[in-house]
C-alpha cells in the first residue's frame, strides 16, 4: 500500500552504488597506499608527485578517485545518520553540512589536480 513507507524513495540506487564504488575503492585505495604512502621516494617528493600530476592518465585517475572516494565516504556517513530517528531540522542540517562540505572539498581537491 505504502510503497516506501513514507520515504521519498527506496534508497536502493544509493545502496547499490555504495557497493559498486566500494569494490572499486578496495583495489584503488590499497594500490594508492602502497605507491604513495608505502614508498617515500615515489610518494613524498615534489618531483615524483609532479611528474605523475602532469600525466593525463594519473590526472583522470585522481579525478575519479577523489569523486568516487568522497561520494562513498559521505553517502556512508549520511547512511549512518539516517539510521537514527532525528527531528527534521537536525536531519536537514546534517544533510546540508555533508553536501556543502563535500562539494567544497571536492572543488578544493579538483583545483589541486587541475593546477598542473
Amino acid at each position: 500500500m505504502y510503497k516506501h513507507e513514507g520515504s521519498r524513495g527506496s534508497g536502493a540506487p544509493g545502496w547499490v552504488l555504495q557497493r559498486i564504488t566500494g569494490l572499486l575503492l578496495v583495489v584503488v585505495v590499497i594500490a594508492h597506499f602502497f605507491v604513495m604512502h608505502g614508498n617515500y621516494s615515489s610518494g613524498h617528493t615534489y618531483a615524483a608527485v609532479l611528474a605523475r600530476m602532469h600525466d593525463p592518465f594519473w590526472k583522470m585517475f585522481d579525478l575519479t578517485f577523489i569523486t568516487v572516494g568522497l561520494w562513498h565516504g559521505l553517502n556512508g556517513t549520511w547512511g549512518i545518520f539516517r539510521d537514527y530517528k532525528m527531528k527534521p531540522a537536525l536531519s536537514l542540517t546534517i544533510f546540508g553540512v555533508i553536501i556543502l562540505s563535500g562539494v567544497a572539498f571536492w572543488v578544493l581537491g579538483v583545483n589541486t589536480i587541475l593546477s598542473f
Partner: peptide, 20 residues
C-alpha cells in the same frame, strides 16, 4: 573506520593543496 576514513579524506585533500 568509515567515519575515520571520511574525516581523513578531508584532511588529505586539504594537506595536498600545498602542491599548488
Amino acid at each position: 573506520t568509515g567515519l575515520g576514513l571520511t574525516a581523513y579524506i578531508y584532511i588529505h585533500i586539504y594537506a595536498l593543496t600545498s602542491l599548488t
